[in-house]
């Protein structure tokens, strides 16, 4: 036992220093020189003010803007310092209630819309910070945006197409639109 104690202790300390201090600090150093924007959170700066991150969604409820995925974070939606999903099971009545409420809100904001409701627009994301919606979810909202803003539908649809990201390398993930980027572009239309 005694012959084990010294190597155990010293090896533990040595490997801890290498993997717990040297390694993360080395990666931080490399990251800050090679990918400074990404390492710092892909922040969006406008007129000298930081207004968000390219990768973190924000809450939108104004009909003038595209709405993102519902967020289950607490106490406020899109709380970027307490990520998480709803964890509601498929048979939980609470899931039905909350989805029904979201459908009602969507329909109330756009009474004439007869398109089927895209699932991602009424279900909470896993992180609560999902920056994207699917193509159908953007198309569903395009009519409302055009009407409320008093612009041509074709302009809105053109903007959605411009901000659509296809599957990465044609294989990975799903086609999607970054909601914050799209809304910033909407505000940029003059």
């Amino acid at each position: 036992m005694k012959t084990l104690l010294r190597p155990a202790l010293s090896l533990f300390v040595l490997l801890s220093v290498i993997t717990g201090l040297a390694y993360p600090l080395l990666v931080t150093g490399i990251a800050k020189t090679t990918f400074p924007v990404e390492a710092g959170g892909s922040l969006i700066v406008k007129d000298g003010k930081t207004i968000g991150s390219r990768l973190i969604g924000q809450n939108f409820s104004d009909p003038r803007y595209f709405w993102g995925r519902p967020s289950a974070t607490t106490p406020m939606p899109y709380n970027a310092s307490a990520s998480g999903g709803s964890n509601l099971g498929p048979l939980n009545p609470a899931l039905m209630d909350v989805v029904k409420g979201r459908i009602d809100t969507l329909r109330a904001a756009d009474p004439g819309n007869t398109l089927p409701i895209p699932a991602d627009l009424v279900t909470a994301s896993a992180s609560g910070l999902d920056p994207h919606i699917g193509i159908a979810a953007a198309a569903y909202q395009a009519g409302r945006i055009a009407r409320v803003r008093g612009i041509e539908l074709a302009v809105v649809e053109g903007l959605v197409a411009q901000y659509t990201e296809s599957r990465q390398w044609g294989i990975f993930g799903e086609p999607r639109v970054n909601v914050l980027a799209l809304n910033l572009a909407l505000d940029g239309l003059r």
Partner: peptide
């Protein structure tokens, strides 16, 4: 409730995945 079934079970999933 009127949700389009073609997207599958999206509760608790991320759009990019």
């Amino acid at each position: 409730l009127g949700v389009d079934p073609t997207f599958g079970n999206m509760e608790g999933k991320e759009t990019r995945f």
